[in-house]
């Protein structure tokens, strides 16, 4: 959902937007003014002094120090003002308040994952309470990513082996897009997530439910597995209809024999799938690059069993047809 704050800027859903919008509008106003001035004078001169006859006389003026001084000093002063304002607001964007709710973010090739250190919840969508500052401590597991929420006007590169911090304080409930804005390869444009802003009480219920979506208790394990297949970006490498991808297809995988890079054969059962999720590099299927990132700490046991059930459900379809 992307509402619009103004023609130019997305919806204003966080207290941090004030640090960007006011300056944006000020610069916009100033630039439109200068632009109209330049174009108007150019068109005026072009029309007024168009060549009416071949011998039209032209002025010998070749400079005017006073005018040149004016149009150097005025832009210079305006620019210094913009610089100072820009840096002051940047500092408030950069340094989070002391009491902010800390959430750890991990950027990995083509999916975001959020861990709530206090409550031990791991999700692929960022669920935050309304009206409370949230501080994200972010790290990447492979290449550069960049965490961008247009609705909150926040963006920060996520660098491997380094923590980078960004903070916001959501003021409106709703779902807002999370984009990755640092080019990171094939799935760069699929690295989408949502920030779900809940009211204080809903957030608390969500925490008590251990991070399950409302009303998800009744869902079957296969459905949860199917949801995780989508949310955890397994689909970017593993297809479920047999087409070849970066990783082996899931169709007919469960129960089949897989030839490994190391040469020996292995039966694809619950343990093999669990091991491949937690430690993918251990036994790599022959003919596939060992690029799968580890999901250790990003999927809890319940979610892994859900994924295994989902793989079983795909596996049986193939046997039928």
């Amino acid at each position: 959902m992307l509402g619009l704050g103004s023609f130019w800027l997305p919806v204003d859903a966080s207290s941090t937007t004030q640090y960007v919008d006011h300056l944006f509008n000020f610069i916009f106003l100033l630039c439109t003014l200068f632009f109209i001035l330049i174009v108007f004078v150019t068109v005026l001169f072009a029309f007024k002094y168009r060549r009416k006859s071949a011998s039209q006389r032209t002025s010998p003026i070749s400079g005017n120090h006073k005018l040149e001084l004016i149009w150097s000093v005025i832009p210079g002063v305006l620019l210094v003002i913009i610089f100072a304002w820009g840096f002051r607001d940047y500092m408030s964007l950069r340094v989070p308040p002391r009491d902010a709710l800390e959430i750890r973010v991990t950027g990995v090739k083509w999916a975001w994952s959020f861990t709530y250190p206090v409550d031990g919840i791991v999700t692929t969508d960022l669920v935050v309470p309304e009206g409370r500052p949230v501080k994200l401590i972010m790290v990447s597991q492979d290449v550069l990513h960049s965490f961008f929420v247009p609705a909150f006007r926040i963006k920060q590169d996520v660098v491997p082996h380094r923590y980078s911090v960004v903070w916001f304080e959501a003021t409106k409930t709703g779902n807002y897009n999370i984009f990755c804005t640092e080019y990171c390869g094939t799935g760069h444009s699929q690295m989408l997530s949502q920030v779900k802003v809940l009211s204080g009480s809903d957030y608390q219920d969500w925490i008590d439910r251990g991070g399950e979506e409302a009303g998800s208790a009744g869902r079957s394990s296969v459905d949860v597995g199917k949801h995780l297949y989508k949310k955890q970006a397994c689909y970017t490498c593993h297809s479920i209809d047999g087409t070849s991808g970066v990783g082996p297809t899931f169709q007919g995988l469960y129960g089949s024999k897989e030839k490994l890079e190391s040469g020996d054969e292995i039966l694809v059962d619950d343990n093999f799938i669990r091991k491949s999720i937690i430690d993918p590099g251990a036994d790599v299927t022959e003919g596939f690059p060992p690029v799968m990132p580890t999901y250790k700490g990003r999927l809890n046991d319940k979610q892994i069993t859900a994924l295994i059930d989902y793989l079983k459900s795909i596996g049986t379809d193939k046997v039928k047809n």
């Binding site: 960007v20 300056l23 944006f24 610069i27 630039c31 820009g86 940047y90 963006k155």
Partner: peptide
């Protein structure tokens, strides 16, 4: 237009939103 929009990107706070 090109030069004036550079001013948006030069101010750090606005660049945080507009970068990339």
């Amino acid at each position: 237009i090109g030069g004036l929009t550079g001013i948006f990107l030069g101010a750090i706070a606005v660049d945080v939103h507009l970068h990339d």
